[in-house]
Computed example of a mutant assay.
Amino acid sequence: MERPEALVIGAGPAGLMAAEEMARAGLQVCVAEAKPSLARKLLMAGKSGLNLTTQEDAEAFLAAYGAAESRLRPILADFGPEQVRRWAEGLDQPLFTGSSGRVFPIAMKASPLLRAWLARLAGLGVEMRPRWRWQGWSGAALAFATPEGERCIAPGVVVLALGGASWARLGSDGAWADLLAAKGVPLAPFAPSNAALSVDWSAHMARHFGQPVKPLALTAGGQRVRGELVVSAKGLEGGGLYPLTPALRKDATLTLDLAPDLAEAAVAERLAQPRGKRSQANHLRRTLRLDPVRLAVLNEFARPLPPAPQTLAARIKALPVAHAGLRPLDEAISTAGGVRWDGLTDELELRALPGVFAAGEMLDWEAPTGGYLLTACLATGRFAGRAAAARLRSGPAGGT
């Protein structure tokens, strides 16, 4: 029976940050990870450019977390965008800020940052144990399936950073939910967040697969987002859609504004210009500069197009999207649901399991892409690691 001072289960950003904080506090820390390699989802996110955080007004940044904002506020106040920047730069990762305020490493990829981070953790004495899959409890100890067979650990404190329930092949399979539910931990059901929409396209849309729809504004549930979409074989995806996922989960109607820089009256006025011998499609191209992709989307969801300029203008400015709902949970970038806040103390300790803390995406919060997800994972991991270290120093945690 091993008895390390601190155990982290899950080697994503939240788990690694928790391990770093506990090691800095002088604890003996080991990290158990079910997969053969560490931080797989972070590496996947970095393939298209690792968006670490976003530089914007503090209140605007916090508003991105929706219903969880009040619980995350003190955690993000302690470790927000500026602290994330300093942390990354401390790992010798130079950064740049894009025109949208999004912050990236100059290298763009996640792998250089991860290598530097793992080297730091090794220097702090953190022990990594890949291929250690958590199986639950064996008495007061935690049981793992490992390449050497079943092993049990009885640590002083535990930080769980097990991720959500999307991208199971990268490690976030949500299998931990049943283990915690059996111990009385309250859970909110998993749901897709930052998810694409399923659309049963007509055959003529195939030529547009992979093409962006822009300029564009999207509205659902009273929220309007200026962004873009991508037409894919399965439906619609992209950064403009993801902030609307909470509303779409509630069956809110999604509408597209295909001419976001013009008022409806201006669109109608342009459409009312003499058409001559031009086809309706050419008239739309000439008067509104609608490109082939936006024209195809308009025809897909509004065919037959109304001939009256005012009616057609209203359709262009608020085009209802016929879809078959969000794509499956495992395809979502992230998930909502997880450990409910009423099951946690202010220190992120599980009320049902003294000495066990939780961090990262396994908590019941969600945020759009754009650095918000990674920032909160790092921040909650840091917070939980510090709280766990303080808990161990204050006295026995009780049966975990």
Score class of each variant (00 low, 15 high):
R102I: 06
T54Q: 12
A145W: 01
L363Q: 01
R131W: 00
D178H: 11
T53R: 00
A376M: 03
S48N: 10
G210Y: 12
P81K: 05
S37G: 09
L244V: 13
P243L: 10
R294H: 05
W365Q: 04
E361K: 03
A266M: 06
S198M: 14
G80T: 06
S100V: 02
R351N: 04
R382T: 13
L363M: 12
N51D: 07
L160D: 02
W137K: 15
L76R: 02
P292E: 13
L290N: 07
G370T: 10
P306R: 12
R289Q: 14
P306E: 11
A272T: 06
G171I: 12
A302M: 01
L7C: 05
V84S: 04
R270K: 15
H283E: 06
M128A: 07
T369W: 03
G46V: 10
L348Q: 00
M1T: 13
R351G: 01
T287P: 01
A196K: 03
G370E: 09
P130T: 06
G338K: 01
L374W: 01
C152I: 08
V185K: 00
A182D: 10
L284C: 07
F79E: 02
W341A: 08
A122F: 02
A63F: 00
L27T: 07
R270I: 05
W167D: 11
P13R: 07
L284I: 07
L229S: 07
G337L: 12
K109T: 15
R270N: 12
A390K: 13
I75C: 01
V103P: 00
T369L: 13
L254S: 09
T54I: 14
G338L: 10
R382G: 00
A143D: 07
D173K: 03
F301C: 11
A122E: 13
G360M: 06
Q273P: 00
A352E: 06
R285Q: 13
A259M: 12
R40Y: 01
R115W: 01
G101Q: 05
G66K: 02
A177S: 12
M44G: 00
L16P: 01
F190D: 08
V29D: 04
H323M: 08
Q280Y: 00
A165H: 03
P309I: 11
K250C: 15
R151H: 05
D261G: 10
A324T: 14
R3S: 14
E21A: 14
T369R: 05
P4H: 14
E2F: 13
E264W: 01
L113N: 00
A265Q: 11
K234V: 10
E150A: 10
V29E: 05
L42Y: 02
E148F: 02
R393F: 05
K214L: 15
T146M: 03
G239V: 09
S138E: 14
A388W: 00
G123C: 09
T146A: 05
L262W: 08
V31N: 03
A384Y: 02
P215T: 14
A77R: 13
A217R: 11
G12L: 14
C377G: 09
L288E: 11
A233Q: 15
R249F: 11
G355D: 09
